[in-house]
Amino acid sequence: MIRYLIKKLITLLILLGLVSITVFAVLFVLPGDPAQIILGINATPESLATLRAELGLDKSFMGQYAHWMGNLLLGQSQQSIHYKMPVYELIRDSLAVTGPLALLAMLFALAISLPFGIYAARHQNQAGDVVVMVCTQLGLATPEFWFGILLTLLFSVQLGWFSAGGFPGWSTDCWGSLKALLLPAFALGVIRASILTRLTRSSMLEVLSEDYVRTARAKGLKERTVVYGHALRNALAPVLTIMGLQLGQLLAGAIIIENVFFLPGLGRLVFNAIGQRDLPVVRDIVLFMAAAVVVVNFLVDIAYAVIDPRIQLE
């Protein structure tokens, strides 16, 4: 297990390095001069040159990359051009919304897809299974923003249980913040649960016809133990893979849902930053998003090994 972990960790670090170079290179070749954007079109060439030197823009590619990464590793990020504050703080603040939102959404997705997927597999081709499958089909076809709007109409406008949008902030109103995330997280979770339910069902169906499940039944185990103790763990791997992908995506921010619910998340931050040509913000967020995907994948790999002891050998 330790060796497997170390191997995966080394792969993770290499990947992160490659990701950072790629992100930097792509944004480096993009046209547009940050100094020009900051000072506006009336800036004198002298002031532009001074600012460029200040920002390190006169250095070579590798020099600029080293400058950027070095500062990031030291925990000092550049200033946002538009917000005039460190990018690090901007990301931290929006992550305080996006992080819990993503986790909550995956929690909803898991809480829906596992029971329903297992139920459908155990009652294959019976009425309950058909209902579940039709619902997942609907879920796959439903745009999440539309579903979010429906939820708002019902729970906020009609019933008045939730506010219709906005985010008070964790330090001001912790409970209110959680409540503000519930509806959007549910909208995101339900849509993602559709594919996960189908996956759980098909994976479970396959495992339930395995010889060792028959052995478990032949031992006289209760059906509950057979399904949850013996079959589920074997069926989980494909579900985990897709969950990892979904979580990585969600951590990158859900722009549309954030706009529907007026949440100051990462999606909105990067959307605005692109519009304002705020290069330092865009660069660090893109790096963060890519890193999030890589790190989540790493965690999925670890989870695999915990679930299936055979994996550590490969």
Binding site: Y212, R233, D308
Partner: peptide, 14 residues
């Protein structure tokens, strides 16, 4: 009952 296939009749993850 014991089965023919010892390779697949035991649960691989337990």
């Amino acid at each position: 009952m014991i089965f023919q296939e010892p390779m697949t009749s035991l649960n691989p993850v337990l």
